[in-house]
Amino acid sequence: MTEDFLTGVRETGLFDRLSVGVQSFDDSMLRKLNRRHSAAMAADAVRRAEMHGFVRLSVDLIYGLPGQGVTEWARELKEVERLNRSLLQPVEHLSCYALTVEPGTMLERQIESGRSEAPDEEVQVAQYGLLQRWIADNGYSQYEVSNYCRNGQRALHNCRYWNRTPYLGLGAAAHSFDGTRRRWNVADVARYTATATDGEVEHEEETLTQRDAYNEYVMTALRTTEGIVKEMVPPPYRTHLERAAKRYLHNGLLTDTGRCLKPTADGMLQADGMAAALFG
């Protein structure tokens, strides 16, 4: 993030929150991720953003990286503490993602060829547990599997995705949702720019069925601490949901508040598997 970029974004008057993709404060891990920045550059970017008036700052980190055990992850969290001490006020938001290996990526090829280790699920669970203890000790609260904030400062745009609130995406590859239809702009910047000047951006779109809407809501809601709000479930699927949720209520992965089906701490770790079982 250059000085010109930070100044220009602030001068628009449109943005008061900035998310910085640090990913790791360990240079060896950044090299494994094929990132161009260093740990020092990332920390400096956060500090410079604050100096330019961005008081609402978020930092992204990844755990479960090849060669990263619980001890190494603990050092990453210590670096967050160190960064916070260097700021006028602590970073208000953290996104901490467990590494997943996406098809067709360099990491997948490295794992297949034996040049890199595959993520260890048991290590990731232990790292997640350490993260839960750390946030409790450092003034953050969890509101989604991977997202944590101080003083209730949640990422509002993410919450819109999870509760199916309509949103508008601007720019190449941006996604929009009007409650029924989802559209996504062409990813190529040159093509996006060329069509945008004509008044109709090149895009694709899909119309969601009621079943699609239900399944998507269950998938995203189970990853949040609030869980599934029953009145948000389409009426034809409410009986199915109540029946399918019984075994998870029985084994302690869900709790029923009357208004919501909320994942427990253990349930958060199994949110994706539960969602698949609750799909319509």
Rank of each mutant, 00 (worst) to 15 (best):
T165N: 10
V9Y: 02
T195I: 06
Q270M: 15
T193E: 14
L87T: 09
V123P: 09
D266Y: 10
R238Q: 12
T2D: 13
E112W: 03
E92G: 14
A245F: 05
G267W: 02
G69T: 04
M29I: 11
G139R: 07
D178C: 09
Y214M: 09
E11I: 05
M29G: 07
L83T: 03
Y97P: 12
P103W: 04
G69R: 03
T239C: 08
G273K: 07
A276W: 03
T100F: 08
S141C: 05
G67A: 04
P236C: 03
S176N: 04
A43R: 08
L6Q: 06
T264M: 05
E72P: 00
A118Y: 01
Y128I: 03
R31H: 12
E112V: 10
Y140L: 08
M106T: 15
L94E: 06
E72S: 12
M41A: 14
G258Q: 08
A49L: 08
T197Y: 00
L168R: 11
M274A: 03
Y128K: 03
P66S: 12
H93L: 00
N147T: 01
D26A: 13
S113I: 08
A194D: 14
N215Q: 13
N147S: 09
L65A: 05
E231D: 14
C159N: 07
T105D: 01
P119C: 03
Q142M: 10
E144D: 06
V55M: 12
G53E: 02
G171D: 14
T105C: 02
R109H: 10
D120P: 05
M41Q: 15
S38Y: 04
A136Y: 00
G280Q: 10
Q124H: 03
G139Y: 06
R109P: 07
T225K: 10
R17C: 09
L261D: 02
E11Q: 15
N138G: 02
N147D: 01
A39F: 11
A276K: 13
A98T: 05
Y248M: 08
L107S: 01
Q127F: 02
R75P: 00
L107R: 05
V22A: 12
L77C: 12
V101L: 09
E112K: 15
V91N: 05
P119Y: 02
L130T: 06
R259F: 12
M274P: 01
H37R: 08
V229G: 05
D44W: 08
T264N: 04
L18N: 08
